[in-house]
Nucleic acid binder design. Structure first.
Length: 842
DNA sequence: GTTTTCACG
DNA sequence: ACGTACGTGAAAACT
């Protein structure tokens, strides 16, 4: 068996991968789908071919010799999208880290390097496998040179293989005649002009008959279809030039030796690091199998002896900085360290009881000024330190540094050396927080909030389970009634919940004119249905059916399943989810309990305070618009807020130039929509959809708004400009959001980036402010030793379960702390209500 | 696992 | 010409 070399066409394969693999990004927002797809193809080929040698060829940026000829003929190639361009250097680094040689040469295309390398290999008796998506390379196929072309169909990558004979079978011509073929028919993707009027069919016939272009030209008068004859006669120069363009050079001055290309170990530590940074979890598995590249597992000192444990704990107590992690696996394990060199793992066993370990851990936290750990909120269920300032949540730190990641858990969390990884991350996180100006945000808002949220989760909210069941029960009758009516009107029984089936019924069977909206079919969303045929009885019934089933499944049944044994729902408040700095609520989500429609709103009656308690519900009035007024410094809007009771009305008056008393309800509605739109990063299309007006009218509204409040316009423009230059935007308190979309070559993505740049500082600042208020309210309630508890946050609203005896004092605290959470150039106003249930309190 | 829809701010 | 408002989470259907 002869040896084998695999030669990969770098640009061609990353290009295929880029368009074939769905968009992926790593923690830093770098697009990675091209690299990921490339590696998958590469590993697959390596697994199949098991070659001795490997190299990857790339074009250099500078135009090549062959390319120049063409550039003179017709402009340049279309540019690579930015999302792909940024991946190329990273791929090159990764390949280099794997010890794979890169073939690149001034004046030569990748094709030429591949061709030359393949020919040299063949001459040396080494089989060559060229991997490319470019059909041009088929000209290189021989019995010893195989071209492998990956094709992605329906997400599955298949690879077509071509030896010389396969080329003949597929194209009826020899590999070298592929050049002739291409020269005649041209190839847009390869920038070969070809002969106008000659396509694939004619070209194949001509070459099959005459072998070469020159020979065909020599017999040009015999050529059958007159069209082809004339084309070749008139454009023979073109054919010749195309042939030159299509011919791959086999004499590039390559210096690569086989030894340079020998495949030894791809799985280097450096390559492992790259894959980790790029978030290629699946590929890391290969490294683990290969073992070689995996960084050595750290030395873990297992502490089982009681005296040793005591020793360790008393030593750690005196350190300035430690990290620790807890995990359960047949008992409690505590991983902890005070250095990057060694890590200790103490497990529950014998005298080392769970209680003992947790007590010791608490003592250490009390003494050591900086104690790093992951997910401190989860930890608090086990360890209750008095000195909260000592805890450092590495996940929250990482979230502030980049809030766009899907998870902040580090991969070693379940290992005995978990704390070592945590410890290693700490200095970098601290430095970044400092450098990025977020240390204060972290220390004074986010870390204290961990404890506030923990107490809120522990407190939970009391629910009347019986009443909730009855509420759900009451919906069933109406749902069945509607279901029957809809099926009757449709003339058949179908699943109303299936947008697909519903679309067919409405738009095909019943002939309603429906715009195809989604990728998969018709859109049947409420706003589309409403606009299309809001007056048709079946549509009305469907909309009502949707509402009812939503209430039943998500709320009545969903919430019922979340009631804990104490009769309360303990929703989780997540601090590292949103891109803007808001908190989110899950299991269940208590931040989207119905309120806008009366029927849904009624569900709030089942949320009730504990005995001898009452709900106090306080919400900020238009906090985002007020934040905008402050941050933009627009004098007119600030003034408006200082006097206005009804900001939307005043906006309407100012924008439409009518006296405040003559503002029509329609004008107020429009002004309100514009105010919302401004906060969202306005677009005329979005506003037009919201108001059911033309984009032209919407555009006029926006223009008039900006004329009225010029400070807003310049502020928003400035945000986008800043984001384009710096790559991120910030809130008043320094919270950051990167906006990588602004670099996109895609118009839609870029527009999205602009809206994000306008919205995030506003939404994020409002989030900062309410977080400050939450901490202060929470701390005040504790300081004043009250039984009343902060139990919910709904973005601009706080719900407190207040002891009846404390209610008046709690109300003062809520008003005071919420209003004074931030000092803005406009007042922060709150609406506060009391109630025996959430429905009444809102 | 992804898509669609809809509940909230 | 592109095809959208910003930020979330849950349920059900679909692939």
């Amino acid at each position: 068996m002869s040896e084998k070399i695999v030669l990969i066409d770098g640009h061609s394969i990353i290009n295929r991968a880029f368009y074939g693999v769905p968009d992926l990004t790593n923690a830093e927002g770098l697009h990675t789908n091209g690299i990921y797809g490339f590696l998958n193809i590469m590993f697959r080929i390596l697994d199949e071919e098991k070659p001795e040698y490997l190299a990857v060829a790339f074009d250099l940026k500078a135009p090549t010799f062959r390319h120049k000829m063409y550039d003179a003929y017709k402009g340049t190639r279309k540019p690579m999208p930015e999302e792909l361009r940024e991946q190329v250097p990273v791929l090159k680094e990764l390949l280099t880290a794997m010890g794979i040689p890169l073939l690149m040469m001034e004046g030569y295309e990748a094709d030429d390097l591949l061709g030359t390398a393949a020919k040299k290999s063949e001459e040396a008796g080494v089989d060559a496998v060229i991997v490319s998506g470019d059909r041009d390379l088929l000209q290189l196929a021989t019995e010893k040179i195989m071209i492998r072309m990956p094709k992605t169909k329906r997400g599955v990558t298949e690879i077509e293989n071509y030896h010389a004979q396969d080329v003949k079978d597929a194209y009826q011509v020899t590999p070298s005649q592929i050049i002739e073929l291409k020269a005649l028919m041209g190839d847009a993707s390869d920038n070969i002009p070809g002969v106008p009027g000659i396509g694939e069919k004619t070209a194949t016939n001509l070459i099959a008959a005459y072998g070469t272009i020159e020979n065909a030209y020599a017999h040009v008068e015999e050529i059958k279809p007159n069209r082809a004859k004339e084309a070749l006669k008139n454009h023979y120069d073109m054919a010749e030039m195309s042939k030159e363009l299509a011919t791959i050079c086999l004499e590039a001055p390559l210096t690569l030796s086989f030894e340079d290309a020998r495949l030894t170990n791809l799985y280097t530590t450096e390559a492992y690091e790259w894959c980790r940074k790029l978030n290629f979890k699946k590929l890391l598995g290969r490294f683990e199998e290969a073992e070689a590249g995996k960084p050595a597992e750290p030395e873990v000192t297992m502490v089982t002896d009681f005296a040793e444990a005591e020793n360790l704990f008393s030593r750690l107590k005196n350190q300035k900085q430690i990290a620790f992690e807890l995990y359960y696996e047949e008992g409690l394990h505590v991983s902890l360290t005070d250095s990057e060199q060694e890590v200790f793992c103490v497990s529950e066993e014998g005298f080392l009881t769970e209680q003992y370990l947790l007590d010791k851990l608490r003592e250490i936290i009390e003494e050591v000024p900086l104690c790093g750990a992951s997910d401190v909120k989860k930890l608090l269920a086990f360890v209750h330190p008095v000195c909260r300032e000592h805890l450092f949540d590495i996940e929250i730190a990482a979230y502030l540094i980049n809030p766009l990641m899907s998870s902040y858990e580090h991969e070693d969390l379940k290992k005995p050396y978990a704390a070592l990884t945590t410890f290693k991350k700490m200095p970098e996180l601290l430095k970044k927080l400092d450098d990025m100006g977020m240390r204060k945000l972290f220390d004074e808002i986010e870390m204290p909030l961990v404890f506030t949220l923990y107490d809120m989760e522990q407190a939970g909210i009391r629910v009347n389970g019986e009443e909730l069941r009855e509420y759900g029960e009451a919906l069933v009758g109406r749902i069945e009634e509607l279901e029957k009516k809809i099926h009757e009107a449709a003339g058949e029984v179908f699943n109303i919940n299936s947008p697909k089936q519903l679309g067919v019924i409405l738009f095909e069977k019943m002939g309603m004119k429906g715009g195809k909206k989604t990728k998969t079919g018709y859109s049947t969303s409420a706003d589309i249905l409403e606009k299309l045929a809001g007056d048709q009885p079946i549509v009305r019934d469907i909309l009502e059916y949707r509402q009812m089933t939503k209430l039943k499944s998500t709320y009545a049944d969903g919430l019922a399943g979340c009631i804990a044994k104490d009769g309360r729902i303990h929703s989780k408040f997540n601090q590292t989810i949103t891109a803007t700095g808001r908190i989110s609520s899950t299991e269940p989500n208590l931040q989207n309990i119905p309120v806008r429609m009366e029927l849904g709103r009624l569900i709030r009656k089942v949320f009730i305070p504990a005995e001898d308690c009452i709900f106090l519900d306080a919400d900020y009035s238009q906090i985002e618009l007020r934040v905008l007024a402050h941050m933009s410094g627009d004098e007119k809007l600030i003034e408006a807020y200082q006097q206005a009771e009804d900001i939307h009305r005043l906006t309407a008056s100012q924008v439409f130039h009518v006296p405040i008393d003559e503002v029509t309800p329609q004008q107020r509605r429009n002004a309100k929509a514009v105010n919302f739109g401004i906060v969202y990063g306005i677009s005329s299309f979005g506003l037009s959809q919201d108001l059911s007006i033309s984009t032209k009218e919407a555009k006029e509204y926006i223009e008039r708004y900006f004329e009225t409040y010029p400070g807003i316009k310049s502020y928003l423009d400035g945000l986008v400009e800043h984001a384009k230059e710096e790559g991120y935007v910030t809130t008043m308190y320094g919270r950051r959001r990167p906006v990588p979309e602004l670099k996109s070559s895609n118009f839609m993505q870029r527009s999205f980036g602009e809206r994000v740049a306008m919205n995030s500082p506003i939404q994020g600042t409002a989030a900062d402010i309410i977080k400050i208020a939450m901490n202060r309210v929470h701390d005040r309630l504790r300081e004043e030793k009250m039984k009343s508890r902060l139990i919910l946050q709904v973005h601009d609203e706080l719900l407190v379960e207040a002891k009846l005896s404390e209610a008046d004092r709690v109300e003062e605290i809520l008003r005071e702390e919420m209003q004074q959470a931030a000092s803005l150039r406009v007042p922060l106003e709150i609406d506060l209500h009391r109630g025996k249930n959430w429905y009444e309190a809102k």
